[in-house]
Amino acid sequence: MKSSFLLILFVLPTLLLFIDSGNKIYARAEDEIDEDLVDVENEGDNEENAMTGDDVEPDEASTTSPDADTQLLFVRPLYNAGTQLELPGGVPVEFLIGFKNKGLNDFIIESVEASFRYPMDFNYYIQNFSAIAYNREVKQESEATVSYSFMPSESFAGRPFGLNIAINYRDSNGVPFVEAVFNETVLITELDEGLDGETFFLYVFFAAIIVLLLVVGQQFLGTIGKKKRSQTIRKQVETGTSNSTDIDYDWLPAQTLRNLQSSPNGKGKLSPKQSPRQRSKRAAKEE
């Protein structure tokens, strides 16, 4: 009994190994996504889909050619398969699609289009990126690479989106094919830079306000001090220049002082009391 149990323990893993069920489960899951996509292409009433939507039949076999082999590679940002792709908002995203023609017919890569969809329902479009027409001919047993780049909006930051990248191609007989090379939910992240221009100028603005406040405060304090002083001065009686002892003549040029002292009207007095008439007379004499 025990040995038969052991036998089962050995046989079961080997059986699993033979069947190789793990990979097949994954493959089926992908096929199902493709099926969804086909429905999307048919149901979507978007103008960009019109070119493919009209031709594509709901039959799954007709959407991808067995002779074509596509490979997606995110160049920017880098992406490891199996993890959720995070795209920084406001920064261009670049990817390459490798296309290999394994069959005997030539293929023509017509266009690649990317679109953001509602992650709960991939039939619902949020943003369509422009479909870039390549029209590249891929001969038999040959490969081609096409590059595509788009920029998720910064305002989408922090939200998940269903990113769908579809490549449209047809063979030499004119049969169109569509393949979704990427159909997953991606997260748009916010790129936090250390110091961007906006915050930098915000701080500059704050500094300016502080300096302004300091200047205003100093002015205010100065006026208060002046008021006090002026009140004390006001009590003095204005005597004019009659009291000649406390007049400061230092500011006058020496020439003027000499003129004043030598003038006959002044009689040695320093105050320049002179009638305008006399002044004009003297000026006339000089000239």
Binding site: F10, V11, P13, T14, L17, F18, D20, Q71, L73, V75, L96, I97, G98, K100, E143, T145, S147
Partner: peptide, 27 residues
């Protein structure tokens, strides 16, 4: 049984030949 299954497993592994695939971008 173990040896046979191991051998089969290795053969299935080596059946997937290593193949290079180049994507070339010109910018």
């Amino acid at each position: 049984l173990l040896i046979v299954s191991m051998a089969l497993a290795t053969t299935t592994d080596s059946g997937e030949e290593t193949r290079a695939k180049l994507l070339v971008s010109k910018q």
